[in-house]
Amino acid sequence: MTLEDALGLYSYWIVIFLMMTGFYIVISGKNLIKTIIGLNIFQTSVFLLYITMGKVQGGTAPILRDGGGHSDHHGEGHNHGGEHGEAIHQGSEHGSVVVDHAVQQASFTEDVIATVGEAAAHSGAEYQGVLYTNPLPSVLMLTAIVVGIATTALALALIVRIREEYGTIEEDEILAIDRKSDS
């Protein structure tokens, strides 16, 4: 294992350390709120793991620069938003412009793919000479963050309910009360 290898893997190790800290909070504590805090820390570490995997060296955020030559027609396209498809079918003057433009754009896109060819398939998402970081982990983690807050809210509501019923949020005291009422 060389220093080079270690530098390439350090981000995973940091994330694993954070994850294990969250895991420790979950399994060592008896307090219900502390457990949820631990779960949250674990969850955030998972987000970080995914985001680090998507990063490309020398890449930039997946927001395409200057609309890629599409911007000159952008305002026009926007004005006619809904009629876009209709216009193409009618073959009106404006419609043909749009079609021309679409064809142009499509062939241009294919050009980019063809010229970059093999290189593009093996060096991440490249568009007009700019290298972009992978957007897919970002998308997945956006969904995960929002679902995470939903589950956290549900867990916290359950804790409030438990506190109303048992008068405590310490797990061992709750179990003791349960055992007493059973016997």
């Binding site: 997946p62 927001i63 599409h70 970002s138």
Partner: peptide, 12 residues
């Protein structure tokens, strides 16, 4: 995504 989304720059 650029032509598909009518020029929307943000791929995410």
């Amino acid at each position: 995504s650029q032509p598909d989304m009518h020029g929307l720059p943000n791929v995410v």
